[in-house]
Amino acid sequence: MQLTNRSKVVSNKEQSFAEKIYLPAIISGMATTFSHLFKKRPTIMYPEVKKEYAPVYRGQHVLKRDENGAERCTSCGMCAVACPAEAITMESGERKKGEEHLYREEKYAKKYEINMLRCIFCGLCEEACPKEAIFLTDKIVDAEFERDTFIYGKDKLVEKIDKRIDVTKRQTPEVLEFKKRVGLRHNELNKTIEKKH
């Protein structure tokens, strides 16, 4: 019974002379390969030329400082809660007198670690952050030789004062507006925290 009309009868016919001596097929094949000599190549010479990333590419994290150079992170732990891979750990500290130029709020992250081997670069930490402190950048996490070195501390995560990282592309007004929307989990959490205070 014929179910579809896609079936093909297999032909096992004898090769013709032209097929037997292979030459016509070989010549047409060689013409094909020769034409590829002049085609455009998709190769990107990597270390010298880099492929452009989207402005919202999710790469290595950065802990932002504010306009005065003080760390924005207040060690609330929202990012750690949001992190599906449980890659973020932190330890809070209290700001002393005279450290106002270092930390924006009274509570700050004494230790802030992201395990880059656990991180799946989903960007939920960025979304959860109420202080606009953590962002993902378009930098790719470097290769390392040891597993321990993949746990990035504040020395690697906090942006350098003289080398600020531009995140305006991912911190557009729309994004900020979106983050305030009622019903997002981090907003609910924020409210409960505020109520406690």
């Binding site: 390969t33 020769f34 590829h36 000599l37 085609k39 455009k40 190549r41 998709p42 190769t43 010479m45």
Partner: peptide, 10 residues
């Protein structure tokens, strides 16, 4: 490499 749309050793 050239025949296969690559650059070959570089």
């Amino acid at each position: 490499g050239l025949l296969q749309d690559r650059w070959g050793p570089s």
